[in-house]
Design a protein around this nucleic acid. Structure first.
Length: 421
RNA sequence: GGAGAGGUGGCAGAGUGGUCGAAUGUACCUGACUCGAAAUCAGGCGUAGGCGCAAGUCUACCGAGGGUUCGAAUCCCUCCCUCUCCGCCA
């Protein structure tokens, strides 16, 4: 959520900044609503003040045993107008709030301008795709060849966009989650957290999934939603909190399943494990001092990259352009891993600085030295998407005979095994 | 799931229709005393928002939402949460 003050002060400037992300701000609507709000709020508060003063006077008179019927009659006439104004003010505030909740974040000045994925800017590459003198298989062919990936059965059990892993691939998947958690906790300074996989609507509003993106979520009974990412429960740890400045930065890492309905993505990546209704992800979250959030973004990105380096998987980092960034982000780097079967780099992590956008929705603040409450900045990034990392290992480490070499760092988690065959 | 108790400021805790945004204690900040500290004394000390150049002033908030009333922390309704006992359960 943007600060309503910035809209009040410079609505045209705001509209301009949002244009770059293909959002057109309804300036006239806002100005009209604000003008109305001002009149109605001023009038309402004036009436409330009069009523309060009169009621107080009645109380004082009654306490002295005097008759108060004259004031009583006077205040009675306020009732209707006050009620009407209060109701109108409520309605206007509600509309204003809904309007604010529907506006995406401002892109940071360093974000490249562009319309789509095609305009994202490559920042760096790491590693070399291996040269192969055999026909590379995709992970589906490899996994089915090993009888360790079984999409047909997954369809029977649940439906499309679910997967079933068995044997060493299931174990490799587990090993990956363990390895990532261990790396981030023991070397990158994150505190491991275990969080609920079902959350309430307030949490989703806090991180920005609601109210606009309900169709991407799975909801269950009792008003709960399955988490689309650990970002939601983890970031909301600080919702409605006033943190002490010494407690910053807060760095959390969580390994959770993620559930996405992916409405509107029909036809994309239908084959294999790339786009699933359920997938595992290790998520990095940082809650930081507002002046340090871009430093923090660089370090968080580095933490995610380190996973790929240790696994020896070639990747590149791209800076998302204004038109391709998510709703809540001020700046986002994607990490894309090389998938030889697709002969392309594919997203495996997304690292974003949300600045105060989520913090404002969540009322997540810290107390400054001077005792003022200021919004924190929030960041998160995948470190990494476990399913896609598994896909990358299968495809990058395959041998001509369809076996897969296990990355060295994972072997301790695999009982010393070197190869899946 | 059944029965009971309860949710008030950072914490503890009073307040059951009127001058209550809320006593008191404690924590914290400032000042005095002190060479310094402790103790003591004085003052300050919640959050969000409106109007205003500012000083300031007004409004809302006592788990959440509605209602009754001139007036609600206090009465009524719905929901949420916590605790105790019983049952069930990984």
């Amino acid at each position: 959520m943007l600060d309503i003050q910035t809209l009040r002060n410079d609505i045209q400037g705001a509209a301009k900044r949002l244009e770059s992300r293909k959002f057109s701000l309804d300036v006239a609507f806002f100005q009209g609503l604000e003008a109305e709000r001002k009149t109605v709020q001023t009038r309402t508060q004036e009436l409330q003040a009069r009523r309060n003063a009169a009621s107080k006077a009645i109380g004082m008179k009654k306490a002295k045993g005097e008759d108060a019927s004259d004031i009583l009659a006077e205040v009675a006439s306020l009732g209707d107008e006050l009620k009407e104004n209060e109701a109108r003010l409520d309605e206007i505030q509600g509309k204003l709030q809904a309007f604010l909740l529907s506006i995406p974040n401002f892109p940071h000045d360093s974000v490249p301008f562009g319309q789509s994925e095609a305009d994202n800017v490559e920042v760096r590459r790491w590693g070399q795709p291996k040269h192969r003198d055999f026909e590379v298989k995709d992970h589906v062919a490899l996994g089915e060849g090993l009888s360790m990936l079984d999409f047909e059965t997954a369809v029977k059990i649940s439906g499309a966009r679910f997967s079933l892993m068995k044997g060493e691939i299931a174990r490799l998947h587990r090993a990956l989650g363990q390895f990532m958690l261990d790396l981030h906790t023991s070397e990158h300074g994150y505190v491991e957290v275990y969080v609920p996989y079902m959350v309430n609507a307030e949490s989703l509003r806090g991180t920005g999934q609601l109210p606009k993106f309900e169709e991407d979520l799975f909801s269950v009974s009792n008003g709960y939603y399955l988490i689309p990412t650990a970002e939601v429960p983890v970031t909301n740890i600080v919702r409605d909190e006033i943190l002490s400045p010494e407690s910053l930065p807060i760095k959390y890492v969580a390994h959770t399943p993620c559930f996405r309905s992916e409405a509107g993505s029909y036809g994309r990546d239908v084959r294999g494990m790339i786009r699933q209704h359920q997938f595992d992800k290790v998520e990095l979250v940082q809650i930081v001092h507002p002046e340090k959030s871009y430093e923090a973004l660089d370090s968080l990105l580095g933490h995610a990259e380190e996973v790929l380096r240790r696994l020896d998987l070639p990747y590149r980092v791209v800076s998302l352009c204004s038109g391709d960034m998510g709703f809540s982000a001020a700046k986002t780097y994607d990490i894309e891993v090389w998938l030889p079967a697709q002969k392309a780099y594919r997203e495996i992590s997304s690292c974003s600085n949300f600045e105060a956008f989520q913090a404002r929705r969540m009322q997540a603040r810290y107390k400054t030295e001077s005792g003022r409450n200021e919004l924190v900045h929030t960041l998160n990034g995948s470190g990494l998407a476990v399913g896609r990392t598994l896909v990358a290992i299968l495809e990058n480490n395959q041998e001509a005979d369809g076996s897969v070499i296990i990355p060295e760092v994972l072997r301790p988690y695999m009982g010393g095994m070197e190869k899946i065959a």
